[in-house]
Simulated assay, not measured.
Amino acid sequence: MSPRSDPEFFDAKYRADPDPWNFDTDWYEIRKRNLLMALLPHPRYGAALEPGCANGHITTMLAQRCDHVLATDIAPHALELARARCRHQVNVTVERWAFGETWRWETAFDLVMLSEVAYYLTEPALTAAIEDMAAHLSTGTTVVLSHWRHDEEDHHLGGDQATRIALSGLPHRPVARYLDDDVRIEVVAVR
């Protein structure tokens, strides 16, 4: 199978199984979510953007730390699942949008969570997406990059490669970092 970034591929996964990557039970996923929240440098954020929200696990955690969370995905069924998971969190909005599409947000986000989404883009597409995103973020915005470090046939890029490309296109200063055999998390502030 070749690398994927099309909505139908992801939607088919969510139609077949509402938890296709075992977000509910996999220790990697549970641990990663807790690491992501622990590495955020501020106790509270005004507005967060989470592209590739999947079925909303990280979204629900972000909603506890943010005044508003805009969670996006390209798979319609994933969006339904995220809306259901976040139905009691009135500060969450779930919309269809793919990271890599033209930036359309007027919101001044002070947190962008890119967890396991950048490697679904090709190198040129990721470079363009980061440049577009950077042009719309304010100085001091927290950006989190989190990626699985093992090769996957459905990814265009490896996790470390996607992280390097993103960091090279984003004017930033490092804030925090976590690295192990499975995951790389980089937390930066936009300069």
Rank of each mutant, 00 (worst) to 15 (best):
Y45W: 08
G46F: 02
G52C: 04
G52E: 10
G52I: 10
C53I: 04
C53W: 09
A54H: 07
A54K: 00
A54Q: 01
A54E: 00
G56N: 07
T59G: 02
T60M: 05
A63E: 01
L70D: 00
L70W: 00
L70Y: 00
T72C: 10
D73F: 12
D73C: 10
P76S: 09
H77N: 11
A82Y: 07
A82D: 11
R83I: 01
C86E: 04
R87M: 07
R87V: 12
R87D: 12
H88D: 13
Q89S: 13
Q89M: 13
T93A: 14
T93V: 13
V94F: 12
R96F: 00
W97H: 15
A98T: 10
G100T: 14
G100H: 14
E101I: 08
R104N: 11
R104M: 15
W105K: 00
A108F: 00
D110L: 04
L111K: 06
V112Y: 07
M113S: 15
L114M: 13
E116G: 09
E116D: 15
A118L: 06
A118H: 02
Y119G: 07
Y119N: 04
L121F: 11
T122F: 12
E123H: 12
E123R: 15
E123A: 15
P124I: 07
L126R: 08
T127Q: 09
T127K: 06
T127D: 14
A128P: 05
A129D: 13
A134S: 15
A135Y: 07
L137M: 13
L137V: 02
T139L: 00
T141D: 00
T141C: 12
V143F: 04
L145V: 08
H147R: 03
H147P: 01
W148N: 07
W148K: 05
